[in-house]
Design a protein around this nucleic acid. Structure first.
Lengths: 133, 133
DNA sequence: GCTTGCCTTGCCGTAAGCGTCAACGTTTAC
DNA sequence: GTAAACGTTGACGCTTACGGCAAGGCAAGC
């Protein structure tokens, strides 16, 4: 199949596929007219990439998974390198979570302090009519 | 004072200060030779920007705070706009936390599944010598 | 022969916050 | 007199994952 069909079937764009190729994630044989030609296994491969990206991995992180599939494994994470990426990414996510928690705490502090400084905290902008609706 | 001194006193670089100026966050009068000239209040202002960035705000988010200080308020968050930024940012951080939690959960799932598929999970790489140390 | 649709390569732009030259003028001290 | 330390503007680099557009080649239906 050609690039357009692969893009449709894998659920992405031709732009993305060509980009993956420049990144060495995808390869294609060429037809006589220069068009890229893909096989069924490429649908699976691109699907793996997209699924991993959705799981929070960067494109670069998907390399071991692609290599693993190319090496004939049934799943992209059937290789040690892939599992290692999972672990590394998990650690990164945990670090990011911790940092965000800290940022959150700082924001809450600043917010409450600012609110405490505001004059007339009990002011009512508009009185509520008793008999409405 | 000139840009170098302001940078030192505020704890940043001249490059950053010039950048803030292009972003409209900082203004400076010019000496006859074209050099930027700052006052004491600018030290405070730049300090506010840096502190907010450290708290997780983007440079753009600091605009209301700077405007608030320029308007003569004692604190940069003595204005409604600034407080609004706190609230918006807090919501953003919360959303980001939720997304990261989901990513984390997905990673853990993938990792445990991949580990479960690995052969020989009880394999011992090296036997532990009984009499060591 | 015309249109339509698919394909090609390549280059620019995005968002954030500066770092790092380049190439040059100014001030100050020895 | 000159060197060091400071100042100026401008422009490019970096990172991610493409989108958009240009300018064209190829294929198929009417």
């Amino acid at each position: 199949m050609r690039i357009g069909e692969l893009a449709r079937r894998a659920g992405t764009t031709t732009r993305a596929l060509r980009f993956y190729e420049t990144q060495g994630l995808l390869t294609a044989r060429r037809l006589e007219n220069g068009y890229r030609e893909y096989g069924e296994e490429d649908v699976r491969l691109v699907g793996e990439i997209l699924s991993l990206q959705a799981a929070g991995l960067s494109l670069d992180d998907t390399r071991p998974f692609v290599a693993c599939l190319r090496a004939g494994h049934e799943a992209g994470d059937d290789c040690a390198d892939s599992v290692e990426v999972y672990e590394r990414k998990l650690a990164e996510v945990d670090a990011c979570l911790a940092r965000l928690e800290a940022v959150r705490a700082g924001l809450v502090t600043k917010l409450t302090e600012a609110m405490a400084r505001r004059p007339d905290p009990c002011r009512v902008t508009r009185s509520i009519p008793l008999e409405e609706s």
